[in-house]
């Protein structure tokens, strides 16, 4: 059921986004918020295993990974995603309810392209981070 993209409008946008978070409430809000402004949320996952499977299946060009995935670590998932899907090398974005400065060290050493606080999660922030080089990968 979670494999299905949430009910948000994909509307012919160039960004295919996978969101990984263990909080369903946030997933719903994030889908609505991002999809509203032309980001195609192709799927959501609540665990690392699910995220890796969907990444292979849905071929997203952007993955948003929550740092605190319950007992799992978003940093670990980021590394594994980038290892397994080299195309995602500059397309994994870390998100968290906590501040960037709390994880500055870990974010810096992670292969993720950047960090967006969840409270600031919005399509422009995502676009700013992943930039233009993802557009090629999307097509």
């Amino acid at each position: 059921m979670r494999d299905e993209p949430p009910a948000c409008d994909a509307g012919g946008v160039e960004i295919r986004c996978l969101i990984v978070d263990d909080n369903e409430r946030f997933l719903a809000a994030a889908c609505a918020s991002l999809g509203r402004d032309g980001i195609n949320v192709v799927g959501t996952a609540t665990s690392s295993a699910e995220a890796l499977r969907l990444a292979a299946e849905l071929q997203p060009n952007v993955v948003l990974v929550d740092i605190s995935l319950g007992d799992e670590s978003g940093f670990d998932l980021t590394r594994r995603l980038v290892e397994r899907f080299p195309a995602l090398a500059s397309s994994v974005v870390l998100i968290s309810t906590r501040a960037e400065e709390d994880f500055a060290d870990l974010i810096a050493t992670s292969p993720a392209v950047g960090f967006i606080p969840k409270s600031r999660l919005a399509p422009p922030a995502v676009r700013d981070l992943v930039g233009a080089n993802d557009q090629g990968a999307a097509s």
Binding site: N23, R25, F26, A29, A30, A32, S33, T97, S119, L121
Partner: peptide, 16 residues
């Protein structure tokens, strides 16, 4: 996991 997530989600909803 609880309060912060809900508040953040609520914020996103409000922006939406």
């Amino acid at each position: 996991d609880g309060t912060q997530q809900r508040l953040v989600s609520l914020g996103l909803d409000l922006r939406l």
